[in-house]
Design a protein around this nucleic acid. Structure first.
Lengths: 361, 361
DNA sequence: TATTTGTACGCAAACGTTTTCGCAAACGTT
DNA sequence: AACGTTTGCGAAAACGTTTGCGTACAAATA
């Protein structure tokens, strides 16, 4: 309160004497030191043409006069904003949020700001956001796609315009560097773990074909079964449009109703797995003795549900950081998506074994 | 793949003919129409001095030439970035994420971008971020404070510099408009609900004094007890530094160990409440018959834990949206935090009754 | 001594937009 | 006819920074 009143009084005084709260510019520094603006600019940017003496003088004065470079003038001149744009489908997902955190950390460490948009899995919105981001002069874009990877026509023109990197929800149809987890290997490990604890009839709840991650995990599932010579039964391979807790419940009911019940259920998402567990609990089916359950993500839910859920930990922080590192490298080398430099980086996951598969004696 | 190859070929051709992929500017539009740059600018900005005829001509050409105003030049000239900064302690909290979503929606609707920073409840970091945001020329700042509201000295100078609004974790020591939930009333309703279902000895697990929200909720707790003439027992009023699931467990153990056990526990956070429930479950204590439990936030956990948790729903989306609305209003009226316009807006919450208090017969 | 090389700095243009001021023509009023 | 007012537009400055080029002086080389 008092502080505000005081500040207002100050403003009045400033107004009275017609003193604008002046922002220090290069010009003012130059005048103060009897140097030219260009010399001051170069001194601050450590240009080799400038002697150490003057560099020190300039920098000291700049500090004492609280000089802040005008970001607009700079960006205007250099066509660089030091802002990177990021697009995610849903920022409220815990895993997504951890990736965002990784991005924020790395970006801020390297002197970049981050502007965020949410696509809500809406392709139209996603494209709008890409465009407005470019309009806003971001130096590069980090994106996690909507599930409908089919619609990539609007993305292809972009990747030749400015640095563009995909993470998490990627697509092999877009030629740019991609940071993702080793979905296939992770799923393989899940299924192998189930086999190792003696399960022989392993169901999977996955998404339909359009989902890149889901297909990869499904591939891992198939590979593990084949490698262990377990026959594949399509009756216990279930696909849903939107993998959620509700659908997890529905699918669990379906699996319970078939004559030859599975002895394990691999839901490719933690929330679906939670739905499965809740349903099994309702019918007093013993987990993991009767049916074991595995999820994917190591979300917070996995330790809250009873029994605690075996799942796959995805290091969101690492994904965010590496994606950002690659993007900034591309920005600063001015490679707008060169095929030669495009990489696919797979970040290691870890199987977290908990009660939903462990209590086998 | 092919698209990329094609684009590369295009670039080669462009290079060969020394055609830079020119970005259309006002100048180019002006030349094309035999008008001055100023007229074109005014036409696009719907300046009254310009005839409708030329406005239409200009706008049409602008569209067909795919004119995008240079954001840097604009910001440079107008000292306006159309970017707002937001600072939150922890973006991975579901409730925080929903607020962020609300902010993103409203901001994008009004033509603003959002840059985000995470303070991780670190006051030093928070101040750094505030400063770099200002450096980056944001038009205003939306902040949710760290828990240590004591350290506000660095914030006071800022609020006179540019529009600044607090949300969720606010502080009445900072004179600016604040958007928050009605913590006190919400807690009051919680406790009254517990009383209504017959509970007479209601414990609370809260944070220490530094936490603004916690103190408000505690005030509501006290008020409800007083109003119903229930005596206050300090032995069942527990404070922790950091309200988490682990501490919820610890506090539950403490409450179970005292001679005169409570018959209800109000944890001022869902995660703590989950810890409480897990502990009660471990000891086979009947919820809610023996001890009822209430949390706060309506997080995802509350429907996953068994029994499902009674809690308070906080409309994050609404908070985010209203905060953004007020901020943009301040930005566009150029009121940098005027006492006269400062408001405290309280968003209504809703008590969600679930099994952890409901099954009383 | 004459020439080259290197060092340290200044001049001025340029980036694209907005905006103040000014001006001419057209119009309206006495 | 003489005067103001309005309408529609242009010229040019300004915002703060970077950068290519020029240059003066000193040092090094021939």
């Amino acid at each position: 309160m008092y502080a505000n009143v005081f500040a207002n009084v100050c403003n009045l005084i400033l107004l009275f004497f017609d003193m604008k709260k002046e922002i220090t510019t290069l010009k003012m520094l130059a005048q103060n030191l009897n140097l030219s603006i260009s010399t001051v600019s170069r001194a601050l940017n450590d240009h080799p043409d400038i002697s150490d003496d003057t560099k020190i003088k300039v920098k000291n004065l700049a500090k004492s006069m609280n000089y802040i470079p005008n970001i607009f003038a700079k960006g205007f001149r250099k066509h660089k904003s030091n802002i990177i744009g990021i697009i995610v489908p849903n920022i409220t997902h815990y895993f997504t949020a951890t990736i965002v955190r990784g991005i924020l950390e790395e970006a801020s460490k390297q002197g970049y700001r981050v502007i965020i948009s949410e696509s809500n899995n809406d392709v139209i919105k996603q494209n709008e956001m890409l465009n407005t981001m470019i309009q806003f002069g971001v130096d590069g874009i980090l994106a996690s796609l909507t599930k409908m990877t089919k619609d990539i026509d609007n993305i292809l023109p972009i990747i030749d315009t400015l640095p563009f990197i995909l993470f998490d929800k990627v697509s092999d149809k877009i030629p740019c560097t991609q940071i993702t987890i080793n979905d296939e290997e992770a799923a393989f490990n899940v299924v192998e773990h189930l086999i190792n604890i003696g399960k022989k009839r392993i169901a999977i709840i996955k998404e339909r074909e359009f989902s890149y991650n889901s297909e990869k995990r499904y591939a891992g599932y198939l590979k593990a079964l084949k490698e262990h010579q377990i026959e594949i039964d399509e009756k216990i391979i279930l696909s849903v449009d939107d993998i959620s807790l509700q659908h997890g419940k529905r699918m669990a009911n379906i699996l319970l109703s078939i004559k030859n019940r599975p002895d394990a259920i691999f839901a490719i998402t933690d929330s679906a797995a939670v739905g499965v567990i809740q349903t099994l609990n309702k019918f007093n089916i013993k987990i993991p003795e009767d049916i074991a359950v595995v999820g994917f993500s190591n979300s917070k839910y996995s330790t809250i549900i009873e029994p605690k859920l075996t799942t796959v930990d995805q290091p969101g922080n690492t994904i965010g950081k590496t994606a950002t590192k690659y993007l900034i490298k591309e920005i600063e080398n001015d490679n707008t998506n060169d095929i030669a430099t495009s990489k696919t980086v797979e970040v290691k996951t870890q199987l977290i074994i908990r009660e939903s598969t462990f209590k086998i004696s």
